[in-house]
Amino acid sequence: MKAIVCMKQVPDTESRITINPEKTGVEQGDFSYIIGPYDEYAIEAALQLKEAAGEGEVVLLSVGDPSIKSTLQKGMAMGADRSVLIEVDSYNGDALTTARLLAAQLKTMEYDIIFFGKQAPDDNNAQVGPMVGQLLGLPTVTAIAALEVQEGKAVVEREVEGGREVYEVTLPALLTTEKGLNEPRYPSLKGIMQAKRKPVDLVSGEVAAATTEQLTWSYPPSRAEGKIVGEGTAAVPELVRLLKEEAKVL
């Protein structure tokens, strides 16, 4: 079972976000970086498939500058065998540009299954995975919450409003992972030590022109300071009155 996990390094989700004075982006300075939370489900799914098959390889693939190596190492500490980093100096993170870079590299690699996290928490795009699936002509299912692989096929479930869609796809396929699929493992001390010796291959990529342009960054309007109506059940009648007369929602 050969699985490739496309992952993205993102700022820790607890990070404070400061927009730069030019309003063209955020200050990168004080971020600590993590593997995208949904990408962790992807890595775990790939590791479980390899373990179940008793053979194979889990390869991490990412795009960016060499500083991403340390985040790739965290994924290799979970158990991935090696990493490939498509090195680009600067690009605006446009989803289709990223998808084209990844698709071009994936064409040179062997796989039974490609995983992505369903979306990155920073740009909230949720596009690169399905775009790569489309560019490579692969059966693609996004945001999967259940996965079963057997004899060259995958049966997957996807949460939608009010239910779950069930798909059966032929491998090779591309799947993006939703929370609830599995419980990502913590790296062991041994895993952390081994990860330092696992290879990160640097490859170059052709950056196509972006099809969208970011104009101005801003903070969302803040909510007006709330008020405490009171304490305990004694405050309930006043709350009901406010919901009826002030908010007019009852």
């Binding site: 976000i17 928490p121 099809t211 104009l215 801003s218 903070y219 969302p220």
Partner: peptide, 18 residues
């Protein structure tokens, strides 16, 4: 042009197609 929330609604960015 569209205004989209990013970084879990901690910021928003106005985006234009090119």
């Amino acid at each position: 042009v569209g205004l989209r929330p990013v970084f879990a609604n901690k910021a928003q960015v106005l985006v234009r197609p090119t």
